[in-house]
Design a protein around this nucleic acid. Structure first.
Lengths: 128, 128, 128, 128
DNA sequence: GTGGTCTAGACCACC
DNA sequence: GTGGTCTAGACCACG
Protein backbone atom coordinates (compact mmCIF):
# COMPACT_ATOMS: atom_id res chain seq x y z
CA UNK A 1 0.00 0.00 0.00
CA UNK A 2 1.47 3.28 -1.10
CA UNK A 3 0.42 6.60 0.38
CA UNK A 4 1.25 10.01 -0.89
CA UNK A 5 -0.16 12.98 1.03
CA UNK A 6 -0.11 16.56 -0.11
CA UNK A 7 -1.09 18.92 2.70
CA UNK A 8 -1.49 21.92 0.45
CA UNK A 9 -3.52 20.84 -2.55
CA UNK A 10 -6.96 21.84 -1.37
CA UNK A 11 -8.22 18.33 -0.70
CA UNK A 12 -8.60 17.55 2.98
CA UNK A 13 -5.92 15.20 4.23
CA UNK A 14 -8.38 12.76 5.79
CA UNK A 15 -10.11 12.65 2.44
CA UNK A 16 -6.88 11.88 0.65
CA UNK A 17 -6.20 9.03 3.03
CA UNK A 18 -9.69 7.59 2.69
CA UNK A 19 -9.53 7.73 -1.09
CA UNK A 20 -6.24 5.98 -1.23
CA UNK A 21 -7.51 3.18 0.97
CA UNK A 22 -10.45 2.80 -1.37
CA UNK A 23 -8.18 2.72 -4.38
CA UNK A 24 -6.04 0.12 -2.70
CA UNK A 25 -9.14 -2.00 -2.22
CA UNK A 26 -10.40 -1.41 -5.73
CA UNK A 27 -7.22 -2.57 -7.38
CA UNK A 28 -6.51 -5.45 -5.04
CA UNK A 29 -3.59 -4.00 -3.13
CA UNK A 30 -5.71 -4.47 -0.02
CA UNK A 31 -7.78 -7.66 0.25
CA UNK A 32 -10.82 -8.46 2.34
CA UNK A 33 -9.88 -9.39 5.89
CA UNK A 34 -6.53 -7.70 5.72
CA UNK A 35 -5.62 -5.32 8.53
CA UNK A 36 -4.89 -1.71 7.70
CA UNK A 37 -1.98 0.02 9.46
CA UNK A 38 -2.79 1.26 12.93
CA UNK A 39 -3.78 4.89 13.33
CA UNK A 40 -0.57 5.68 15.11
CA UNK A 41 1.67 3.90 12.69
CA UNK A 42 0.10 5.43 9.63
CA UNK A 43 0.09 8.85 11.28
CA UNK A 44 3.82 8.76 11.92
CA UNK A 45 4.49 7.25 8.48
CA UNK A 46 2.63 10.09 6.77
CA UNK A 47 3.79 12.74 9.23
CA UNK A 48 0.24 13.69 9.92
CA UNK A 49 -1.85 14.26 13.00
CA UNK A 50 -3.27 10.97 14.37
CA UNK A 51 -6.69 12.60 14.60
CA UNK A 52 -6.60 12.98 10.87
CA UNK A 53 -5.95 9.31 10.23
CA UNK A 54 -8.60 8.40 12.79
CA UNK A 55 -11.05 10.60 10.95
CA UNK A 56 -10.32 8.86 7.67
CA UNK A 57 -10.73 5.42 9.25
CA UNK A 58 -13.96 6.54 10.90
CA UNK A 59 -15.38 7.58 7.55
CA UNK A 60 -14.24 4.33 6.01
CA UNK A 61 -16.04 2.42 8.74
CA UNK A 62 -19.18 4.48 8.15
CA UNK A 63 -18.91 3.64 4.46
CA UNK A 64 -18.57 -0.06 5.29
CA UNK A 65 -15.04 -0.43 3.97
CA UNK A 66 -13.43 -1.15 7.30
CA UNK A 67 -14.61 -2.86 10.45
CA UNK A 68 -13.10 -2.77 13.93
CA UNK A 69 -11.64 -6.01 15.28
CA UNK A 70 -11.47 -5.39 18.99
CA UNK A 71 -7.94 -5.51 20.19
CA UNK A 72 -6.57 -6.23 16.73
CA UNK A 73 -7.23 -3.13 14.73
CA UNK A 74 -9.26 -2.38 11.62
CA UNK A 75 -9.67 -4.76 8.74
CA UNK A 76 -11.07 -4.54 5.26
CA UNK A 77 -14.65 -5.83 5.13
CA UNK A 78 -15.85 -8.51 2.75
CA UNK A 79 -18.24 -6.06 1.15
CA UNK A 80 -15.51 -3.51 0.65
CA UNK A 81 -14.61 -4.64 -2.80
CA UNK A 82 -18.12 -4.62 -4.19
CA UNK A 83 -18.89 -1.35 -2.47
CA UNK A 84 -15.73 -0.03 -3.91
CA UNK A 85 -17.23 -0.73 -7.29
CA UNK A 86 -20.71 0.76 -6.79
CA UNK A 87 -19.55 3.61 -4.66
CA UNK A 88 -16.89 4.72 -7.02
CA UNK A 89 -18.99 4.28 -10.10
CA UNK A 90 -21.49 6.64 -8.57
CA UNK A 91 -18.83 9.16 -7.69
CA UNK A 92 -17.20 8.85 -11.08
CA UNK A 93 -20.55 9.28 -12.75
CA UNK A 94 -21.05 12.54 -10.91
CA UNK A 95 -17.53 13.73 -11.61
CA UNK A 96 -17.84 13.03 -15.30
CA UNK A 97 -21.19 14.75 -15.37
CA UNK A 98 -19.65 17.87 -13.91
CA UNK A 99 -16.80 17.84 -16.37
CA UNK A 100 -19.23 17.43 -19.25
CA UNK A 101 -21.22 20.40 -18.00
CA UNK A 102 -18.07 22.50 -17.78
CA UNK A 103 -16.99 21.49 -21.24
CA UNK A 104 -20.34 22.39 -22.73
CA UNK A 105 -20.46 25.69 -20.88
CA UNK A 106 -17.03 26.46 -22.26
CA UNK A 107 -18.37 26.02 -25.73
CA UNK A 108 -16.39 22.89 -26.58
CA UNK A 109 -17.77 20.76 -29.37
CA UNK A 110 -18.23 17.05 -28.92
CA UNK A 111 -15.21 16.35 -31.09
CA UNK A 112 -12.92 18.69 -29.20
CA UNK A 113 -14.01 17.19 -25.91
CA UNK A 114 -13.51 13.63 -27.04
CA UNK A 115 -10.11 14.46 -28.43
CA UNK A 116 -9.10 15.85 -25.05
CA UNK A 117 -10.40 12.84 -23.17
CA UNK A 118 -8.73 10.49 -25.57
CA UNK A 119 -5.40 12.21 -25.33
CA UNK A 120 -5.46 12.19 -21.55
CA UNK A 121 -6.58 8.60 -21.30
CA UNK A 122 -3.67 7.52 -23.42
CA UNK A 123 -1.15 9.66 -21.61
CA UNK A 124 -2.10 9.08 -18.02
CA UNK A 125 -0.12 6.48 -16.13
CA UNK A 126 -1.37 5.01 -12.90
CA UNK A 127 0.93 4.14 -10.10
CA UNK A 128 -0.60 1.96 -7.48
CA UNK B 1 -26.88 37.33 -18.62
CA UNK B 2 -28.31 34.68 -16.41
CA UNK B 3 -27.19 34.08 -12.86
CA UNK B 4 -28.21 31.19 -10.73
CA UNK B 5 -26.66 30.88 -7.29
CA UNK B 6 -26.88 27.90 -5.06
CA UNK B 7 -25.78 28.94 -1.60
CA UNK B 8 -25.19 25.44 -0.33
CA UNK B 9 -23.64 23.29 -3.00
CA UNK B 10 -20.15 23.31 -1.63
CA UNK B 11 -18.84 25.87 -4.10
CA UNK B 12 -18.35 29.28 -2.54
CA UNK B 13 -20.84 31.89 -3.72
CA UNK B 14 -18.18 34.31 -4.94
CA UNK B 15 -16.69 31.44 -6.91
CA UNK B 16 -20.02 30.63 -8.52
CA UNK B 17 -20.42 34.24 -9.55
CA UNK B 18 -16.92 34.44 -10.99
CA UNK B 19 -17.42 31.22 -12.96
CA UNK B 20 -20.67 32.36 -14.41
CA UNK B 21 -19.14 35.59 -15.58
CA UNK B 22 -16.41 33.57 -17.25
CA UNK B 23 -18.95 31.29 -18.86
CA UNK B 24 -20.88 34.30 -20.07
CA UNK B 25 -17.71 35.59 -21.69
CA UNK B 26 -16.83 32.20 -23.12
CA UNK B 27 -20.13 31.75 -24.88
CA UNK B 28 -20.55 35.33 -26.01
CA UNK B 29 -23.30 36.40 -23.64
CA UNK B 30 -20.88 39.07 -22.43
CA UNK B 31 -18.76 40.88 -24.98
CA UNK B 32 -15.52 42.78 -24.60
CA UNK B 33 -16.11 46.33 -23.44
CA UNK B 34 -19.50 45.58 -21.98
CA UNK B 35 -20.16 46.64 -18.40
CA UNK B 36 -21.07 43.95 -15.91
CA UNK B 37 -23.91 44.66 -13.48
CA UNK B 38 -22.82 46.91 -10.64
CA UNK B 39 -21.78 45.31 -7.39
CA UNK B 40 -24.81 46.61 -5.59
CA UNK B 41 -27.26 45.72 -8.30
CA UNK B 42 -26.06 42.16 -8.68
CA UNK B 43 -25.93 41.78 -4.92
CA UNK B 44 -29.58 42.67 -4.51
CA UNK B 45 -30.54 40.61 -7.56
CA UNK B 46 -28.87 37.52 -6.13
CA UNK B 47 -29.82 38.36 -2.57
CA UNK B 48 -26.25 38.14 -1.35
CA UNK B 49 -23.99 40.57 0.40
CA UNK B 50 -22.35 43.21 -1.80
CA UNK B 51 -18.96 42.20 -0.42
CA UNK B 52 -19.47 38.76 -1.87
CA UNK B 53 -20.08 40.12 -5.35
CA UNK B 54 -17.17 42.51 -4.91
CA UNK B 55 -14.95 39.59 -4.04
CA UNK B 56 -15.92 37.78 -7.22
CA UNK B 57 -15.33 40.89 -9.31
CA UNK B 58 -12.01 41.49 -7.61
CA UNK B 59 -10.85 38.01 -8.51
CA UNK B 60 -12.01 38.54 -12.07
CA UNK B 61 -9.94 41.71 -12.24
CA UNK B 62 -6.92 39.86 -10.91
CA UNK B 63 -7.47 37.26 -13.64
CA UNK B 64 -7.65 40.00 -16.25
CA UNK B 65 -11.28 39.40 -17.19
CA UNK B 66 -12.60 42.70 -15.90
CA UNK B 67 -11.14 46.17 -15.59
CA UNK B 68 -12.36 49.14 -13.57
CA UNK B 69 -13.67 52.15 -15.45
CA UNK B 70 -13.40 54.83 -12.82
CA UNK B 71 -16.82 55.96 -11.74
CA UNK B 72 -18.53 53.93 -14.43
CA UNK B 73 -18.20 50.40 -13.24
CA UNK B 74 -16.40 47.28 -14.39
CA UNK B 75 -16.15 46.18 -17.97
CA UNK B 76 -15.06 43.06 -19.76
CA UNK B 77 -11.49 43.39 -21.01
CA UNK B 78 -10.42 42.79 -24.57
CA UNK B 79 -8.26 39.88 -23.49
CA UNK B 80 -11.09 38.29 -21.56
CA UNK B 81 -12.31 36.16 -24.38
CA UNK B 82 -8.97 34.71 -25.32
CA UNK B 83 -8.09 34.22 -21.67
CA UNK B 84 -11.40 32.55 -21.26
CA UNK B 85 -10.32 30.07 -23.86
CA UNK B 86 -6.83 29.35 -22.57
CA UNK B 87 -7.75 29.56 -18.95
CA UNK B 88 -10.67 27.22 -19.18
CA UNK B 89 -8.97 24.79 -21.47
CA UNK B 90 -6.26 24.50 -18.86
CA UNK B 91 -8.76 23.99 -16.05
CA UNK B 92 -10.77 21.50 -18.06
CA UNK B 93 -7.62 19.66 -19.01
CA UNK B 94 -6.75 19.25 -15.35
CA UNK B 95 -10.28 18.22 -14.43
CA UNK B 96 -10.42 15.59 -17.13
CA UNK B 97 -7.02 14.35 -16.14
CA UNK B 98 -8.23 13.82 -12.59
CA UNK B 99 -11.30 11.98 -13.76
CA UNK B 100 -9.22 9.77 -16.00
CA UNK B 101 -6.93 8.96 -13.10
CA UNK B 102 -9.90 8.10 -10.92
CA UNK B 103 -11.40 5.93 -13.60
CA UNK B 104 -8.16 4.03 -14.09
CA UNK B 105 -7.65 3.64 -10.37
CA UNK B 106 -11.14 2.24 -10.13
CA UNK B 107 -10.22 -0.37 -12.65
CA UNK B 108 -12.50 0.82 -15.45
CA UNK B 109 -11.59 -0.30 -18.93
CA UNK B 110 -11.29 2.18 -21.73
CA UNK B 111 -14.57 1.00 -23.22
CA UNK B 112 -16.48 1.31 -19.97
CA UNK B 113 -15.14 4.79 -19.42
CA UNK B 114 -15.94 5.96 -22.92
CA UNK B 115 -19.43 4.55 -22.68
CA UNK B 116 -19.99 6.54 -19.50
CA UNK B 117 -18.65 9.73 -21.00
CA UNK B 118 -20.71 9.24 -24.11
CA UNK B 119 -23.91 8.64 -22.21
CA UNK B 120 -23.42 11.73 -20.07
CA UNK B 121 -22.48 13.97 -22.96
CA UNK B 122 -25.64 13.07 -24.76
CA UNK B 123 -27.84 13.49 -21.71
CA UNK B 124 -26.53 16.72 -20.30
CA UNK B 125 -28.38 19.87 -21.25
CA UNK B 126 -26.85 23.29 -20.87
CA UNK B 127 -28.79 26.39 -20.16
CA UNK B 128 -26.99 29.57 -20.95
CA UNK C 1 -1.74 70.90 -25.90
CA UNK C 2 -2.15 67.20 -26.21
CA UNK C 3 -4.27 65.20 -23.79
CA UNK C 4 -4.40 61.48 -23.40
CA UNK C 5 -6.73 60.07 -20.74
CA UNK C 6 -6.83 56.48 -19.58
CA UNK C 7 -9.91 55.79 -17.45
CA UNK C 8 -8.66 52.43 -16.23
CA UNK C 9 -5.08 52.83 -15.16
CA UNK C 10 -5.60 53.46 -11.48
CA UNK C 11 -4.77 57.15 -11.54
CA UNK C 12 -7.78 59.38 -11.03
CA UNK C 13 -8.86 61.11 -14.20
CA UNK C 14 -8.86 64.58 -12.67
CA UNK C 15 -5.31 63.89 -11.56
CA UNK C 16 -4.28 62.89 -15.06
CA UNK C 17 -5.71 66.10 -16.43
CA UNK C 18 -4.04 68.26 -13.82
CA UNK C 19 -0.68 66.62 -14.42
CA UNK C 20 -0.85 67.11 -18.12
CA UNK C 21 -1.64 70.78 -17.71
CA UNK C 22 1.39 71.08 -15.46
CA UNK C 23 3.55 69.29 -17.97
CA UNK C 24 2.30 71.58 -20.68
CA UNK C 25 3.36 74.54 -18.58
CA UNK C 26 6.70 73.02 -17.67
CA UNK C 27 7.73 72.45 -21.24
CA UNK C 28 6.33 75.64 -22.67
CA UNK C 29 3.35 74.27 -24.54
CA UNK C 30 1.27 76.53 -22.35
CA UNK C 31 2.57 80.03 -21.64
CA UNK C 32 1.72 82.45 -18.85
CA UNK C 33 -1.47 84.35 -19.60
CA UNK C 34 -2.73 81.83 -22.09
CA UNK C 35 -6.30 80.59 -21.62
CA UNK C 36 -6.88 76.91 -21.06
CA UNK C 37 -9.81 75.22 -22.84
CA UNK C 38 -13.17 75.72 -21.15
CA UNK C 39 -14.42 73.02 -18.82
CA UNK C 40 -17.12 72.04 -21.25
CA UNK C 41 -14.93 71.98 -24.28
CA UNK C 42 -12.22 69.93 -22.67
CA UNK C 43 -14.81 67.59 -21.17
CA UNK C 44 -16.33 66.80 -24.53
CA UNK C 45 -12.91 66.55 -26.17
CA UNK C 46 -11.76 63.99 -23.60
CA UNK C 47 -15.16 62.33 -23.32
CA UNK C 48 -15.19 62.69 -19.56
CA UNK C 49 -17.60 64.16 -17.06
CA UNK C 50 -17.41 67.99 -16.86
CA UNK C 51 -17.24 67.67 -13.09
CA UNK C 52 -13.97 65.87 -13.55
CA UNK C 53 -12.41 68.63 -15.60
CA UNK C 54 -13.77 71.19 -13.17
CA UNK C 55 -12.13 69.32 -10.32
CA UNK C 56 -8.79 69.32 -12.11
CA UNK C 57 -9.02 73.04 -12.81
CA UNK C 58 -10.03 73.67 -9.22
CA UNK C 59 -6.93 71.89 -7.97
CA UNK C 60 -4.80 73.79 -10.45
CA UNK C 61 -6.19 77.05 -9.14
CA UNK C 62 -5.49 75.97 -5.57
CA UNK C 63 -1.92 75.19 -6.63
CA UNK C 64 -1.59 78.61 -8.21
CA UNK C 65 -1.19 77.37 -11.78
CA UNK C 66 -4.44 78.80 -13.08
CA UNK C 67 -6.44 81.88 -12.22
CA UNK C 68 -10.02 82.72 -13.08
CA UNK C 69 -10.63 85.61 -15.50
CA UNK C 70 -14.23 86.49 -14.89
CA UNK C 71 -16.22 86.02 -18.02
CA UNK C 72 -13.21 84.86 -20.03
CA UNK C 73 -12.21 81.56 -18.50
CA UNK C 74 -9.07 80.33 -16.77
CA UNK C 75 -5.59 81.40 -17.69
CA UNK C 76 -2.13 80.27 -16.77
CA UNK C 77 -0.65 82.41 -14.00
CA UNK C 78 2.68 84.17 -14.23
CA UNK C 79 3.98 82.12 -11.32
CA UNK C 80 2.92 78.89 -12.93
CA UNK C 81 6.17 78.24 -14.64
CA UNK C 82 8.37 78.76 -11.60
CA UNK C 83 5.93 76.82 -9.43
CA UNK C 84 6.03 74.16 -12.00
CA UNK C 85 9.73 73.92 -11.34
CA UNK C 86 9.67 73.90 -7.53
CA UNK C 87 6.52 71.91 -7.24
CA UNK C 88 7.66 69.19 -9.54
CA UNK C 89 11.12 69.04 -8.15
CA UNK C 90 9.58 68.37 -4.76
CA UNK C 91 7.29 65.69 -6.14
CA UNK C 92 10.08 64.11 -8.12
CA UNK C 93 12.29 64.15 -5.10
CA UNK C 94 9.68 62.22 -3.15
CA UNK C 95 9.06 59.81 -6.00
CA UNK C 96 12.70 59.03 -6.41
CA UNK C 97 13.05 58.57 -2.69
CA UNK C 98 10.30 55.95 -2.74
CA UNK C 99 11.86 54.13 -5.64
CA UNK C 100 15.22 54.12 -3.90
CA UNK C 101 13.63 52.67 -0.79
CA UNK C 102 11.94 49.95 -2.83
CA UNK C 103 15.14 49.12 -4.61
CA UNK C 104 17.06 48.82 -1.37
CA UNK C 105 14.37 46.73 0.23
CA UNK C 106 14.47 44.44 -2.78
CA UNK C 107 18.12 43.90 -2.11
CA UNK C 108 19.42 45.63 -5.25
CA UNK C 109 23.00 46.81 -5.12
CA UNK C 110 23.91 50.34 -6.06
CA UNK C 111 25.35 49.15 -9.34
CA UNK C 112 22.30 47.15 -10.33
CA UNK C 113 20.05 50.08 -9.53
CA UNK C 114 22.13 52.56 -11.48
CA UNK C 115 22.28 50.23 -14.43
CA UNK C 116 18.50 50.04 -14.45
CA UNK C 117 18.07 53.78 -14.19
CA UNK C 118 20.63 54.35 -16.89
CA UNK C 119 19.01 51.91 -19.26
CA UNK C 120 15.59 53.44 -18.79
CA UNK C 121 16.78 56.99 -19.12
CA UNK C 122 18.39 56.20 -22.44
CA UNK C 123 15.39 54.29 -23.71
CA UNK C 124 12.56 56.50 -22.68
CA UNK C 125 11.21 58.89 -25.28
CA UNK C 126 9.09 61.84 -24.34
CA UNK C 127 6.29 63.05 -26.50
CA UNK C 128 4.96 66.43 -25.65
CA UNK D 1 10.15 39.70 10.94
CA UNK D 2 9.40 43.32 11.46
CA UNK D 3 6.04 44.87 10.59
CA UNK D 4 5.30 48.51 10.65
CA UNK D 5 1.87 49.63 9.52
CA UNK D 6 0.86 53.16 8.81
CA UNK D 7 -2.94 53.25 8.60
CA UNK D 8 -3.09 56.60 6.84
CA UNK D 9 -0.36 56.93 4.27
CA UNK D 10 -2.50 56.31 1.24
CA UNK D 11 -1.41 52.72 0.77
CA UNK D 12 -4.05 50.23 1.85
CA UNK D 13 -3.20 48.32 5.00
CA UNK D 14 -3.54 44.91 3.38
CA UNK D 15 -1.18 46.13 0.67
CA UNK D 16 1.38 47.27 3.21
CA UNK D 17 1.25 43.88 4.86
CA UNK D 18 1.63 42.03 1.58
CA UNK D 19 4.58 44.18 0.54
CA UNK D 20 6.37 43.68 3.80
CA UNK D 21 6.00 39.93 3.52
CA UNK D 22 7.49 40.15 0.04
CA UNK D 23 10.32 42.27 1.29
CA UNK D 24 10.96 39.83 4.09
CA UNK D 25 11.21 37.07 1.51
CA UNK D 26 13.40 39.14 -0.77
CA UNK D 27 15.98 39.89 1.88
CA UNK D 28 15.95 36.51 3.52
CA UNK D 29 14.16 37.38 6.74
CA UNK D 30 11.57 34.79 5.71
CA UNK D 31 12.78 31.56 4.18
CA UNK D 32 11.01 29.04 1.99
CA UNK D 33 8.96 26.63 4.07
CA UNK D 34 8.73 28.93 7.04
CA UNK D 35 5.29 29.65 8.47
CA UNK D 36 4.11 33.24 8.52
CA UNK D 37 2.38 34.50 11.68
CA UNK D 38 -1.21 33.31 11.91
CA UNK D 39 -3.93 35.63 10.70
CA UNK D 40 -5.21 36.15 14.18
CA UNK D 41 -1.83 36.67 15.77
CA UNK D 42 -0.66 39.20 13.23
CA UNK D 43 -4.01 40.96 13.37
CA UNK D 44 -3.75 41.50 17.10
CA UNK D 45 -0.07 42.40 16.84
CA UNK D 46 -0.78 45.09 14.25
CA UNK D 47 -4.07 46.07 15.88
CA UNK D 48 -6.00 45.60 12.66
CA UNK D 49 -8.96 43.46 11.73
CA UNK D 50 -8.20 39.79 11.01
CA UNK D 51 -9.99 40.14 7.68
CA UNK D 52 -7.44 42.71 6.62
CA UNK D 53 -4.56 40.38 7.32
CA UNK D 54 -6.45 37.55 5.64
CA UNK D 55 -6.86 39.71 2.58
CA UNK D 56 -3.14 40.32 2.40
CA UNK D 57 -2.38 36.63 2.85
CA UNK D 58 -4.96 35.70 0.22
CA UNK D 59 -3.30 37.98 -2.30
CA UNK D 60 0.06 36.50 -1.43
CA UNK D 61 -1.33 33.04 -2.10
CA UNK D 62 -2.71 34.20 -5.44
CA UNK D 63 0.75 35.52 -6.27
CA UNK D 64 2.31 32.21 -5.34
CA UNK D 65 4.26 33.51 -2.35
CA UNK D 66 2.35 31.59 0.30
CA UNK D 67 0.57 28.26 0.37
CA UNK D 68 -1.90 26.91 2.89
CA UNK D 69 -0.84 23.99 5.06
CA UNK D 70 -4.18 22.66 6.17
CA UNK D 71 -4.65 23.20 9.86
CA UNK D 72 -1.12 24.41 10.30
CA UNK D 73 -1.12 27.82 8.74
CA UNK D 74 0.48 29.47 5.74
CA UNK D 75 4.02 28.94 4.69
CA UNK D 76 6.39 30.58 2.24
CA UNK D 77 6.52 28.66 -1.02
CA UNK D 78 9.69 27.42 -2.64
CA UNK D 79 9.09 29.64 -5.63
CA UNK D 80 8.56 32.70 -3.45
CA UNK D 81 12.13 33.82 -3.51
CA UNK D 82 12.61 33.61 -7.24
CA UNK D 83 9.22 35.19 -7.82
CA UNK D 84 10.22 37.86 -5.40
CA UNK D 85 13.12 38.63 -7.67
CA UNK D 86 11.28 38.63 -10.99
CA UNK D 87 8.15 40.19 -9.64
CA UNK D 88 9.86 43.05 -7.92
CA UNK D 89 12.29 43.69 -10.69
CA UNK D 90 9.33 44.11 -12.99
CA UNK D 91 7.55 46.45 -10.59
CA UNK D 92 10.70 48.44 -9.95
CA UNK D 93 11.36 48.65 -13.64
CA UNK D 94 7.96 50.17 -14.18
CA UNK D 95 8.32 52.54 -11.24
CA UNK D 96 11.67 53.78 -12.42
CA UNK D 97 10.31 54.17 -15.93
CA UNK D 98 7.56 56.41 -14.61
CA UNK D 99 9.99 58.50 -12.62
CA UNK D 100 12.23 58.89 -15.63
CA UNK D 101 9.28 60.01 -17.72
CA UNK D 102 8.32 62.54 -15.07
CA UNK D 103 11.84 63.83 -14.85
CA UNK D 104 12.09 64.28 -18.59
CA UNK D 105 8.71 65.92 -18.77
CA UNK D 106 9.83 68.32 -16.07
CA UNK D 107 12.76 69.29 -18.23
CA UNK D 108 15.49 67.87 -15.99
CA UNK D 109 18.78 67.19 -17.68
CA UNK D 110 20.48 63.84 -17.31
CA UNK D 111 23.03 65.32 -14.95
CA UNK D 112 20.45 66.91 -12.70
CA UNK D 113 18.49 63.70 -12.53
CA UNK D 114 21.48 61.56 -11.75
CA UNK D 115 22.59 63.96 -9.07
CA UNK D 116 19.19 63.68 -7.43
CA UNK D 117 19.19 59.90 -7.58
CA UNK D 118 22.69 59.74 -6.25
CA UNK D 119 21.96 62.03 -3.35
CA UNK D 120 18.87 60.04 -2.35
CA UNK D 121 20.52 56.67 -2.67
CA UNK D 122 23.28 57.75 -0.34
CA UNK D 123 20.90 59.28 2.17
CA UNK D 124 18.25 56.64 2.40
CA UNK D 125 18.57 54.15 5.22
CA UNK D 126 16.75 50.86 5.20
CA UNK D 127 15.63 49.08 8.29
CA UNK D 128 14.89 45.43 7.80
C1' DG E 1 -24.18 56.69 -8.91
C1' DT E 2 -19.56 53.68 -9.04
C1' DG E 3 -15.89 50.53 -6.70
C1' DG E 4 -12.47 50.04 -2.59
C1' DT E 5 -11.23 49.50 2.19
C1' DC E 6 -11.91 48.38 6.78
C1' DT E 7 -14.24 46.72 10.94
C1' DA E 8 -16.94 43.50 13.63
C1' DG E 9 -18.67 39.30 14.36
C1' DA E 10 -20.63 34.76 13.04
C1' DC E 11 -20.09 30.03 11.26
C1' DC E 12 -17.59 26.31 9.06
C1' DA E 13 -14.15 22.55 8.02
C1' DC E 14 -9.92 20.88 9.20
C1' DC E 15 -5.89 19.43 12.21
C1' DG F 1 -5.52 25.97 17.22
C1' DT F 2 -5.60 27.04 11.74
C1' DG F 3 -7.65 29.50 7.43
C1' DG F 4 -12.09 30.42 4.58
C1' DT F 5 -16.60 32.34 3.74
C1' DC F 6 -20.28 35.31 4.48
C1' DT F 7 -22.96 39.10 6.42
C1' DA F 8 -23.72 43.80 7.96
C1' DG F 9 -22.62 48.26 7.98
C1' DA F 10 -19.47 52.34 7.86
C1' DC F 11 -16.46 55.49 5.33
C1' DC F 12 -13.87 57.12 1.35
C1' DA F 13 -12.58 58.80 -3.40
C1' DC F 14 -14.17 59.36 -7.84
C1' DG F 15 -17.42 60.77 -11.73
Amino acid sequence: MFFEINPSNGVAIFEQIARQVKYAVANGALRAGELVPSVRELATRLAVNPNTVARAYRDLQADGFLEAMRGEGLRVTKQAIERSGKHRTKLLHERIRQVVVEAKQSGLTEDEFYALVDQLWKKEQIEV
